[in-house]
Amino acid sequence: MSIQPVPVPVPVPPRPAGAVRAFWERLGLPGLIDVHTHFMPERVLDKVWEYFDAAGPLTGVEWPITYRHEERERVALLRGFGVRAFTAMLYPHKPAMAAWLNSWSADFAARTPDCLHTATFFPEEGVGAYVRRAVDDGARIFKAHLQVGGYDPHDRLLDPVWGLLSDAGIPTVIHCGSGPVPGRHTGPAPIARLLARYPRLPLVVAHMGMPEYTEFLDLADRYAEVRLDTTMAFTDFSEQFSGFPPQERGRLADLGDKILLGTDFPNIPYPYEHQLDVLERLGLGDDWLRAVCHDNTARLLRLDG
């Protein structure tokens, strides 16, 4: 299955940061918590942006980057929006890369206190040791990207990783849905098998699991420690090729304590506030928005106590 290129809406210039702040101030929140933002070494991020610019085969569509700024400015933008905690989602696409990324991320978190210390891994010899080291060094959250990494989450080399993260209760944001383009190991079936082996494993399914929304909602229903992030879901951009099924909207309310705000900043083809606008447009109420945009992630990551 492949996704055919679709027209991209004419980019809308981002509104001033006050538009984002007005959203959370109206809800009476102290700010936003964004569980899915990307910070990584400059040369790695440059390669990522080059890939998006070329509409590479893992994207399948034109994908203009709205926040193509240097690192300091990107951090300042999030702070200006009132994002009180965010992540450095980074991921390897080959062996002998993850430990180096983890070292960079630990340094970034040390000099950026509002960034949650993020780490990653790849199925390779020594993965258990460097994941243990990252945990001992204070990693709060991990990132796994089955589409880009092209690996099977059941690779035997990852057994000590899943066991450690399950026992430690440290969540992994995992890109496991088959959007925007399927990978060899994407889809709900590998994750269902993984959770059958590690039923207490804390997973945050990125992008609401698009396009297999229903199946990943089922897993969140079945397993206490499975959550989903909103990254790019419901946006005008994603709805063109991977629309959220209207009949499942009621389940968003039923699972409202398991849905977390994520945006993919800075690698988004629209302004940051659009992700917030479309969540409000769902019409699920202010209590739901408060939980999704702040309280659920604060509770998961113990940010308020």
Rank of each mutant, 00 (worst) to 15 (best):
A196L: 10
L45F: 13
E273P: 13
R302D: 15
N102Q: 04
L116H: 03
D167E: 15
W63D: 04
R133W: 09
V10H: 06
F142I: 09
L203H: 08
M232C: 10
A106D: 11
P9Y: 00
W49A: 09
L217F: 12
R227D: 03
R184G: 02
E124C: 02
T172C: 09
L29M: 05
A224I: 03
Y67S: 06
Q4I: 03
F234D: 08
N102L: 03
W24L: 01
V131N: 08
D114L: 09
D159V: 13
T112E: 15
D53E: 14
L219S: 07
G18F: 00
P16I: 00
E25Q: 15
P266R: 00
W104N: 02
H38R: 08
G126L: 08
V278H: 09
E215N: 02
L194S: 06
M40G: 06
D137V: 00
S238C: 11
G250H: 04
P160L: 06
R111A: 04
H117W: 06
D159E: 15
M89N: 13
V44N: 04
M40V: 07
L195Y: 02
F142M: 11
M210E: 14
E42L: 13
V135M: 11
P211D: 13
Y151H: 12
R84N: 02
L252M: 10
L45D: 13
L32S: 04
V61M: 10
A253N: 07
D286H: 12
P41L: 01
R132T: 11
H154C: 06
A253Q: 14
A19G: 03
E125F: 00
H38E: 10
D264I: 07
M232T: 12
F241E: 12
D287C: 06
H294A: 01
A298G: 08
P5T: 01
T235D: 10
P182F: 01
L29Y: 03
T172V: 15
L32F: 07
R222N: 03
L29I: 03
R227E: 05
Q240H: 10
R299L: 06
V148Y: 15
P246E: 08
P30A: 02
M210T: 12
P190T: 01
A196K: 14
P64A: 01
A96W: 08
L217W: 08
L45E: 15
S178H: 09
S103I: 00
V135D: 11
V292E: 05
R227H: 14
F39V: 07
Y91R: 02
D136T: 09
L195D: 09
L282N: 08
E70P: 08
A85V: 01
M40W: 05
E50L: 12
Q240Y: 05
P153N: 07
P95F: 00
P211V: 07
P16R: 01
R302M: 06
D236F: 07
D257G: 14
G28R: 09
P13R: 00
K258P: 11
R222Q: 15
S105P: 14
